[in-house]
Computed example of a mutant assay.
Amino acid sequence: MSWLLSKRAVSPLVSAYEKQKEFITNASHELKTPLAIISANNDIIEIENGSSKWISSNKGQIKKLSSMIDMLVTLTKLDESAKLENASSVDIASLLNSSIEGFAPLAEAQGKSFNVSAHKGSKEDAPLTHFSFSISNYSENLKKGSYDILFDRFYRLDSSRNSETGGFGIGLSIAKVIVQKHGGEIKAFSPDGERMVFRLEI
Rank of each mutant, 00 (worst) to 15 (best):
S2Y: 14
L4P: 00
R8C: 11
A9S: 13
S11D: 14
S11N: 11
P12C: 06
L13D: 05
L13Y: 13
V14M: 10
S15V: 10
S15R: 07
Y17N: 04
Q20H: 04
E22V: 09
I24M: 15
T25Y: 04
A27V: 06
A27E: 10
H29G: 09
H29C: 08
K32H: 02
P34Y: 13
P34R: 13
A36W: 12
I38Q: 00
S39Q: 14
N41V: 02
N41C: 15
N42A: 03
I44G: 11
I45Q: 06
I45T: 14
E46G: 03
E46L: 09
N49G: 12
N49E: 13
S51P: 09
S52Q: 08
W54M: 12
W54N: 14
W54S: 15
I55C: 07
I55L: 15
G60A: 03
G60V: 01
G60H: 02
I62W: 00
K63R: 11
K63D: 15
K64Q: 10
S66P: 01
S67Y: 00
S67G: 06
I69N: 03
V73T: 08
T74V: 03
L75C: 02
L78N: 03
L78R: 01
S81P: 01
S81F: 06
K83V: 12
K83H: 14
L84T: 01
N86R: 08
A87I: 08
A87S: 10
V90Y: 14
I92S: 10
L95D: 05
L96N: 02
L96P: 05
N97Y: 11
N97Q: 13
N97A: 14
S98Q: 12
E101N: 03
F103L: 01
F103M: 02
P105N: 05
E108V: 00
E108T: 04
Q110W: 03
Q110N: 12
Q110Y: 03
G111R: 04
K112A: 11
K112E: 08
F114M: 03
N115A: 11
V116L: 14
S117D: 13
A118Q: 00
K123N: 12
K123L: 11
D125T: 05
A126P: 05
A126H: 04
P127C: 01
P127N: 05
L128H: 05
T129A: 08
H130K: 12
S132C: 07
F133Q: 09
S134D: 14
S136D: 07
S136E: 07
S139H: 07
E140W: 02
L142D: 01
K143G: 11
Y147K: 03
I149Q: 04
L150G: 06
F151S: 06
D152F: 09
R153L: 15
R153A: 13
F154I: 10
F154Y: 12
L157Q: 11
D158Q: 06
S159M: 11
S159I: 14
S159Y: 08
S160E: 13
R161H: 08
S163H: 02
E164M: 09
T165Q: 10
T165H: 08
T165D: 09
G167Y: 02
F168Y: 01
G169H: 00
G171Y: 00
L172A: 03
S173W: 03
A175L: 15
K176F: 05
I178R: 14
I178A: 05
V179F: 04
V179W: 05
Q180H: 15
K187W: 02
K187C: 08
K187H: 07
F189S: 11
S190P: 07
D192G: 08
D192F: 14
G193W: 03
R195K: 13
F198S: 09
I202S: 13
